[in-house]
Amino acid sequence: MSALLVLVVGLVAGIVAGVTARRHGRVDDSAHQMVNFWVLDVALPALALNVLHSVIFPANLLLIVAGPYLLFAFSATLFLWVGRVLHLRRDVVGALIVTTAVANTSFVGIPMVTAFFGAESVPVALLVDQLGSFIIVGTAVIAVAATASGAGVTRAEIARRLLTAPALIALLTGLVLRPVAFPGWLTAALTTLGSTLTPLALFSIGLQLRIGAVRAWRRELAIGLLVKLVIGPALVFGIYALAGSLGDHGVQVALFETAMPPMVAGAMIAMRYGLATPLPSLMVGVGVPVSLLTLPIWSWILQG
């Protein structure tokens, strides 16, 4: 549970730092951007390059990693429909998709899988994260964020932002270089850089979190977390149930991963593109504690 502890400490430290700094006027509202630069342009690419270079592919790979893609498709469709019905702004719909259509399959997912399914199930969780959530964040999430960030953004500009995103470049590089063995010093360096992502990302989100904003964004927050923690996983669960695959232990772990709270990297990307601030930070700040109540229920359903 050490990873979960790091997540909580990072978030709380960011909240305390933000409240203290604003109270004494020592920091402006753009201070978090310096932290975001490190997280999105250094730590995340380092992690992507490292894990995609060394991941091992099992025989039932497609069955295991399909969950995150189904979750993203279902969630994005639901948010687009809700956006039309409730006449939500373009950036709000974009923030909901970017922040909550992908699950936190690593920072929260791995400790939760260890707690409810045992340490022997962690390799499955890593595959779901690296070949599912990670690839979606590096491609579809960036594309949605670029599209939702402004009506004046051209397709060429969206393509440029997507293709020049450091995380996507690192992800593709890791796959291309799989036949090439990395020297030990490079692997160690990438591991160290990647390990800074969790505490700094949560610190940045906590720094921007305004607890008082929960009331102003309560409708959007409730919609996002209902889809992320309940409806989205239930739809994916239903697809696997119809396919008769629920008896597979790997599938159970993969489905459990789809029930995790909003992904930190997605929230960071939403904030970089200025999507409905402070909704993305609220999604993570509120979603992680709430998921500690919903995840035991999903574990019981899957293993019952």
Rank of each mutant, 00 (worst) to 15 (best):
S2V: 05
V6S: 03
V9M: 01
G10C: 02
V12I: 03
G14S: 11
T20F: 07
T20E: 05
T20S: 10
A21K: 02
H24E: 12
D29H: 12
H32A: 13
M34K: 13
V39R: 11
L40Q: 03
L40V: 05
L52A: 05
H53S: 14
H53K: 14
V55G: 09
I56C: 12
P58R: 02
A59I: 01
L62C: 11
L63K: 11
L63N: 13
L70F: 09
L70N: 03
F72R: 13
F74Q: 12
L78S: 10
L80A: 00
W81T: 02
L88N: 13
R90N: 02
V92T: 02
I97R: 14
T99M: 13
T100P: 12
V102P: 03
T105E: 02
S106C: 06
F107P: 08
V113P: 04
V113G: 03
V113T: 03
A115I: 15
F117R: 07
A119R: 15
V122F: 05
V124S: 11
V128K: 00
D129K: 03
Q130M: 12
Q130A: 14
S133I: 08
V137E: 02
G138P: 03
G138N: 00
T139K: 15
I142V: 11
A145S: 00
A146F: 04
G152H: 04
I158Q: 09
A159I: 06
L162F: 06
T164A: 00
I169E: 10
A170G: 10
A170D: 03
L171M: 10
L177I: 15
V180D: 00
A181M: 13
P183Q: 06
G184Y: 01
L186D: 08
L186E: 00
T187H: 08
A189T: 03
L190S: 00
L190D: 06
T191Q: 11
L193N: 04
L197H: 08
T198F: 04
L202C: 12
S204M: 07
G206P: 01
G206N: 07
L209V: 13
V214M: 01
R215T: 15
A216D: 13
E220C: 11
L221W: 10
I223T: 07
G224C: 09
L225E: 11
V227M: 07
K228T: 10
I231V: 03
A234Y: 09
V236P: 08
V236G: 10
F237S: 08
I239E: 08
L242K: 13
L242G: 04
G244K: 11
H249Q: 15
H249T: 15
G250D: 09
V251F: 06
A259D: 01
M260L: 06
P262C: 02
V264I: 10
A267Q: 13
M268A: 08
I269W: 05
A270D: 07
Y273S: 00
G274E: 05
G274S: 11
A276N: 03
L279F: 05
L279C: 08
S281F: 04
L282M: 08
M283H: 01
V284K: 00
P289F: 05
V290F: 09
S291G: 05
T294M: 14
T294Q: 12
W298F: 11
S299L: 04
S299K: 09
S299P: 05
W300T: 15
